[in-house]
Design a protein around this nucleic acid. Structure first.
Lengths: 354, 354
DNA sequence: TTGTAAGCGTTATCAT
DNA sequence: ATGATAACGCTTACAA
């Protein structure tokens, strides 16, 4: 009736508790024969280990470090908030998080921060950073010192990071492309593309996915060269304004990064609000407002709450060398329009007081 | 540095462990004065109780019951599989699940099953059922006996269920409507609507949301009366076939429920595959295949894995009278097209063996 | 009204 | 290579 415990296994297998534990945790110093005896007992009894008890006994706590660029991007801000919420929740499982920010323009600062991390003080590192050589090396060094690393939001594929939690930018770009194409049904014309910077791999991949789809499936549309706004509203206003004037057949606008407010302002200036199909990325207060106002038609997004919780869960699993639940940790490429906009999270999440 | 425990409180307050426990759990038999002494110590030390340890000591386990209709609908099948996966995961936290099926046409069987549930054998009930008077009464009775109830996928708003885990059908219908309208840009014509049955509240609400959007935002489109197919492919073939022939200006098809394969077969028969915008609900093997083949343009879905995990987490929280994390438990109204189709879950989820 | 001590299911530290 | 035994933070008889 009641669930089998390690004691039951020990009795059934005719060994001691300690041996069962050794087998359970794949610790060395057990004969092959004993191992299989224990495993047999486990299978026979249908044992499943009580995680809570295990963690209690370990009384181990997990100090995670998460590094985000100190940019004022709304996505980063949103993610930081989500991480704080997730950390409050994870505290119940002895997992705490230190959230650090690094100057976005200097990867050397980031690298030295990472290099200074003490392997027996930090159980894992979450990192959102562009994949520059400096970063690559820093991540490799971290892993060499036995600290698990997960890449957040932006992947670091060539660093042997333990895991990536986020969405595939290329597929996200394709998704944006299909929506743009279909929302422009019947139209012949150009698509204006705005990015913060085309040096970031995510932007490049989004653009590549977008182009692929438009070229092969929507030949009536032409994607214009990307304008780089470097997060500067005035620059966007000028560059996009010029392009707008020079493009009489404009059908749609694709924002790879930020700039939603500046774009809306520009279009309003010109009396063009609502005249084009506009598609962007990430759900932030700005894009949310734009969706509600009808200035933005769709957003391709990843759920920051899920991202944050997943990051902490995965880090913890890695720290424990436990497998992760692929299904639970896989982020979806979300399509958000006004009608399925999730309600603005009202409370900052219950800070589990009692 | 380390978190304070009950022992620390006891020492700080100059009382014994047992007294601290009595105060913590609001048990009787403690002087007012002692109570406040303990509470002071708790506040001073910033104690936060370790729930896992508490539950371990209680050696409490949570036996949940989930009831699904015994229909052969693919969504229900998918959900059942997701629940089994979630249960395998939840087993590590002393939460087990019994998955029961009831004959979909007879709510009295369901009601008597619910009535037979023993309050000190089952810690919570998850229920997917239409909201008939019989069901309403059964749910009320359950709650009166102190068993928490969460509604799954389909809400039971007038039963005082503890929680609903699923998406808002009305908003889902509106989302479908917007996509239909936008994908039909420039077209003037009719939309064929197919449902299993219009007796189900979810279908009614989806349709209502869909109509609202089309009528107010896409006046060039006309939504035809719903055809009820009762899950019967031949009936769908006949009814939809007739309507198809009688509707020369058909622009789109909206499937409120199942029937994707039958519809594809019909359209193929008539050489009409790919001629209309087709939008449906829920991601199942059939809709997935249809999306991949290009016979279906978009699906409005809720994530069954999330639904299942959320249901079990919420039931557990309710059983413990703990607050739930709104952010984590809120399901998104997902828009799935070919480009953001999540990969088919390869493994049935790690059955946490070790 | 309060305290003592024995668990709960694991893990970890010694012995053997 | 294996076994006792004492934690881990909390609850719960049973005593006092």
């Amino acid at each position: 009736m009641t669930r089998p415990t390690v004691n039951d296994i020990a009795r059934e297998a005719g060994v001691s508790l300690a041996t069962v534990d050794r087998v359970l945790n794949a610790r060395p110093g057990v004969r092959e024969k004993t191992i299989s005896a224990v495993n047999d007992a486990i299978a026979r009894l249908g044992y499943v280990r009580d995680l809570a008890a295990a963690n209690l006994a370990r009384s181990r706590s997990y100090r995670m470090v998460v590094l985000l660029p100190a940019s004022d991007s709304q996505f980063v801000t949103t993610l930081a908030a989500a991480l704080d919420d997730a950390a409050a929740l994870a505290a119940a499982t002895r997992t705490e998080m230190r959230l650090l920010r690094y100057p976005p323009e200097d990867m050397h600062v980031l690298a030295s921060t990472l290099a200074a991390l003490d392997p027996d003080d930090v159980a894992g590192v979450g990192l959102m950073a562009p994949e520059t050589p400096v970063v690559r090396d820093a991540v490799r060094a971290l892993r060499a010192r036995g600290i698990p690393v997960v890449a957040l939001a932006s992947d670091l594929p060539n660093t042997a990071r333990d895991h990536f939690v986020g969405i595939d930018s290329h597929a996200a770009g394709r998704t944006a492309g299909v929506l743009m194409g279909r929302f422009c049904r019947g139209l012949t014309g150009s698509i204006l593309v705005l990015a913060d910077s085309m040096l970031l791999r995510d932007s490049i991949e989004r653009r590549r996915g977008f182009d692929e789809v438009i070229q092969t499936e929507f030949p009536a549309l032409t994607v214009l060269p990307t304008l780089e706004t470097h997060g500067a509203p005035d620059l966007l206003h000028r560059l996009a304004g010029d392009r707008l004037a020079a493009t009489p057949d404009l059908a749609g606008i694709y924002l790879l990064g930020s700039g939603h407010r500046a774009l809306a302002a520009l279009l309003r200036d010109r009396g063009l609000l609502g005249r084009f199909v506009v598609i962007g990325h990430e759900l932030t207060p700005h894009t949310r407002a734009a969706l509600m106002a009808g200035h933005l038609d769709a957003v391709i997004a990843q759920n920051p709450g899920h991202l944050a919780r997943s990051a902490l869960r995965v880090l913890r699993a890695k720290a424990d060398r436990q497998p992760i639940d692929e299904g639970q940790e896989r982020l979806r490429i979300e399509v958000v329009i006004r009608e399925n906009l999730p309600p603005e999270s009202p409370e900052p999440g219950p800070r589990s007081l009692s």
